[in-house]
Amino acid sequence: MRVTVDMTVCESHGQCVFAAPDVFAFDDEDRLIYEPAPPAALARHVRTGALMCPARAVTIAEDGA
């Protein structure tokens, strides 16, 4: 799974951070940082994070797709 966040669209709602804290986080300057290639075990949480992002900033590409 590959994750991208469109930082021009992200509004720092933090819904992704809440859904998948091992993949998304805020840094010390409150900027969103994330793991672009999360392990398969976290895929479910990442998908929830993408669905819960009100800004629709999170895009997921499944491996092999």
Partner: peptide, 12 residues
């Protein structure tokens, strides 16, 4: 208001 990490911490 501001500091988006704080609200996430409270939610947790």
């Amino acid at each position: 208001v501001g500091g988006p990490g704080r609200i996430g911490a409270y939610r947790r």
